[in-house]
Design a protein around this nucleic acid. Sequence first.
DNA 1: GTCTATATAATGATAGAC
DNA 2: GTCTATCATTATATAGAC
Lengths: 229, 229
Amino acid sequence: MVTMRSPLSLDEDDLHTAARIRAAAVRVFGASGFGVGLRAIAADAGVSAASIVKHFGSKAGLREACDEFVLRVIREGKRETVGTGDVTAILRELAASERYEDVARYVVASLSEGGSLARTLFEHMVADAVEYLEAGVAAGVIRPSRDPAARARFLTQAGVGALLVEIRLTPPEELDMVDLVRHLERTTMLPALELYTEGLFTDSRILDALLAETPVPHDVAPDPPAAAG
Amino acid sequence: MVTMRSPLSLDEDDLHTAARIRAAAVRVFGASGFGVGLRAIAADAGVSAASIVKHFGSKAGLREACDEFVLRVIREGKRETVGTGDVTAILRELAASERYEDVARYVVASLSEGGSLARTLFEHMVADAVEYLEAGVAAGVIRPSRDPAARARFLTQAGVGALLVEIRLTPPEELDMVDLVRHLERTTMLPALELYTEGLFTDSRILDALLAETPVPHDVAPDPPAAAG
DNA sequence: GTCTATATAATGATAGAC
DNA sequence: GTCTATCATTATATAGAC
C-alpha cells in the first residue's frame, strides 16, 4: 500500500481529499481574499462545505493549513533568489512559474490582508535583503550603511508597500497578480534605479543635521561622509 | 430661521442628525474598517440602524458621504504641506491635530482597504510630490530626474506603501494611527535620508545599462550622464 | 423623523443519514 | 468519509407604528 504523502504536489487529480481541498483553498483565497466563503472553496474542490470542516476543523484551521503549506513551498523552493537585488524576489520567482501562480496570489493576499504568514514572510524578506546588501557591500557595489538592518527593512517595506499600493488602487476585476508584478517592474525600474544610483538630495545638509542630533543607532558607522568625523 | 449648514463642524453636540451620523461613521469606519456593521455606527451616533439607512439610502451611500466629507476637510485644510518634503505630509498634518484624528484614521482605513477615495487621495499626493520635487529642483536642493512624474509616483508609492505594510504587520488591537505615523517616522528617517542623500549603488553601471536599452520615457532627459548621448 | 419588528440573504458550523 | 439538511448568527435593508 502506497502511503502517498507528497505534500508539495500540485497535480490535483490524484491527490487525497484533504490535499485537494487545501489546493483549492490556496487558489480561491488567493483569487478572492480570505473573506471568501467556505462554499466557494468547496465548489472549487468538488466537495461539500461540511467536508472541509470535517477535515480542517474550521475555516481558521483551513487557513492555517494553507499558510503552512505555502511557507513550506517557499522555503523548499528557495534557490539563489539572493543575487537578483530586489526584495520582492520571492514573489517574482513564484509568479514566474505557472506552477506556482496560485501560491504567488496567496502570498499577495496574505500580505494584503495581514496575518501570521504575512509577518513571517516579511521578516523572511528583510533577512534576505540584509544578506544581499551585505554581500553587495562586501563586493563593493553597494554603499555601506550606518544602520544596515534599518536600511534593509526600509527597502523591503518600500518594495512590498509599492505592491500593496498598486493592489489597492487597481480595480479588483482587473487585478491579476502576474500582470501586476510585471507592471510594477516596468513603471518603477527607472525611478528606483535612478534614485538608488544618484540619490535625491544634492547635498548632505539634512542628513548631517539628523546625524548630529542622534547618537547613531547601534551599528558601527562605516564611513561618515563629511560631518561627525 | 438659521439654515445651519456648517458641514465641516466636528463638534457633534449641536449637529443635526445626518451630520452626527456621518461624524460617527467617520470615527467608526476609521477605527474598525469598512467591514463594520451599521449597528455599531448607529450605537456610536445614538440612533437606530434604520435611521442611518433613511438618511443615506444605504451603507454605500453613507460611505460616499464620508468620503466626500473627508476629501473636503483635506482640501479646505490644505495649507503649506508642500515644503515639508514628504509624501505622507497630508496624513501627518491630520494626525497632528487632535481635532482631525478621526479623519486621519479614516484616510488610513481608505488607503488600507481601497476604494475611490484612496485613488483620489493617492493622485493628490503624487501631484503634491511632483510640485514639491519640482520646486526643490528649481531651488537646487533636489536632483533633476529623467522622468519626474515617474519619480514622484515611485516616492509616493514607497511612502504610502511603507505605512500600509506597517499597518498590516501590526496586531489590530495595538494599532493606533497616531502612534503608527510617529513610529514610522522614527524608524525610517535615518535609512530614508541616508538612501536619498547618498544613494545605494556605488556606481552607475546598472542604470547606464537600463538607459542604453530604453528610449527614455517621454519627458526631456535633463542631463544624460554617460550613455544615450 | 425615529423607532421596533421583520424580510432576506449569507456566513461558519453541526447533526445525522448513508 | 461524504453528503443533505439545518442551526445560530450576522449582515443590509424594508415596513409600518407612533
